[in-house]
Simulated scan of single mutants.
Amino acid sequence: MQTILYARVSTTDQTIAHQEKQARDAGFTLDRVISDDGVSGVTTRLVDRPEGRRLFDILRSGDVLVVRWVDRLGRNYADVTETIREFMRRGVVIKTIINRMTFDGATTDPMQQAVRDALIAFMAASAQAQAEATKAAQAAGIEHAKANEGNAYRGRKPSFTRAQMGTVRDMLAQGAGVSAIAQATGLSRQAAYRIKDDPAEAEAALMKWGM
């Protein structure tokens, strides 16, 4: 039996090392780290990613698969739910760093199965909804920036980075409160609220400053 961390990053603002540190800080003892760098979770299924494919080849009954959150497996509802079910059928236990969720296919109790499956569906749907909301905010931010392209005034430099903004969005999708988000990201509550209340404006501010 082995414990494997699967990490995925899609932009240069994210790092594999950060996800590994999060896992170890959360108390996981990792035997292996498998990662896909620069791969979209929206357009590319786990099984179609170079290293994601390896998970299907090496995971065995009794193994533990650790992910930061289910969105690392993907941001497509159908892909994520089927992937988790496939791993559970094999006897693999899936654990998330955020929210400390555990998905185990060993239970035979129908009520426990129903609750587990409903939770998987909710988290997978949240991952897809967050991806779609982020895409919409980015599009709105681009339009906002274009509309003010001739205006030399850029306003105050954002107090957050693109990576921090991504973390705020992810944690909001997972139901985290602003205080918890501020503590996790090192941002002020005001900055977290700004991203939460107007993601398009936050995106536009980063673009104006080339961030």
Score class of each variant (00 low, 15 high):
Glu86Ala: 15
Val168Trp: 05
Gly91Tyr: 08
Val70Pro: 02
Ala125Leu: 09
Lys157Val: 14
Ala124Asn: 07
Ile94Gln: 10
Trp209Phe: 12
Asp109Ile: 03
Arg100Ile: 00
Ile58Gln: 14
Gln14Phe: 07
Ile84Phe: 02
Ala163His: 12
Ile181Leu: 08
Ser126Cys: 12
Ala182Glu: 11
Ala17Cys: 03
Lys95Pro: 03
Gln113Trp: 05
Arg60Met: 01
Ala191Trp: 08
Thr102Ile: 07
Arg189Tyr: 13
Pro158Cys: 15
Ile34Gly: 00
Asp117His: 12
Pro110Trp: 15
Glu82Asn: 10
Ser61Ala: 14
Val67Glu: 00
Arg100Trp: 01
Gln164Phe: 11
Ile98Pro: 07
Ile98Tyr: 06
Ala17Met: 09
Arg68Phe: 01
Gly166Val: 03
Arg85Ala: 09
Met101Pro: 01
Glu20Phe: 07
Asp71Phe: 00
Thr167Val: 12
Gly210Glu: 01
Glu203Thr: 14
Ile120Leu: 04
Ala129Phe: 00
Thr96Cys: 11
Met171Gly: 04
His144Met: 13
Glu201Thr: 07
Gly155Ser: 08
Gln14Trp: 01
Leu119Asn: 11
Met88Trp: 06
Arg24Leu: 02
Ile94Asp: 01
Leu73Ile: 13
Gln112Ile: 04
Met111Lys: 11
Gly150Tyr: 13
Arg85Cys: 02
Arg24Ser: 01
Glu201Tyr: 08
Tyr193Ser: 04
Gly210Ile: 10
Trp69Val: 04
Ser10Met: 08
Leu59Lys: 11
Ala204Glu: 10
Ala152Phe: 13
Ala131Lys: 07
Gln138Lys: 12
Asp197Met: 03
Leu55Tyr: 14
Glu149Ala: 14
Ala124Arg: 10
Leu172Thr: 03
Ile94Ala: 10
Phe56Val: 03
Pro158Glu: 15
Thr134Asp: 12
Gly177Ala: 04
Ala147Glu: 15
Ile94Leu: 14
Ala26Phe: 04
Ser159Val: 06
Phe56Ala: 08
Thr134Leu: 04
Ser159Met: 11
Ser179Thr: 12
Asp63Met: 01
Ala152Gln: 11
Gly186Asp: 10
Val33Gly: 00
Asp197Val: 00
Met1Val: 11
Glu82Leu: 11
Trp209Asn: 03
Lys196Asn: 13
Val93Arg: 15
Gln138Glu: 08
Asp31Ile: 02
Ala192Arg: 02
Arg90Asp: 00
Val178Ser: 05
Asn99Gln: 15
Ala127Ser: 13
Ala106Gln: 14
Phe56Met: 09
Ala127Phe: 03
Gly91Asp: 04
Asp37Arg: 15
Asp36Phe: 09
Ala23Glu: 01
Ala176Trp: 02
Ala106Pro: 07
Phe103Val: 09
Arg49Ala: 04
Gly177Cys: 05
Val9Asn: 04
Arg85Asn: 05
Ser61Leu: 03
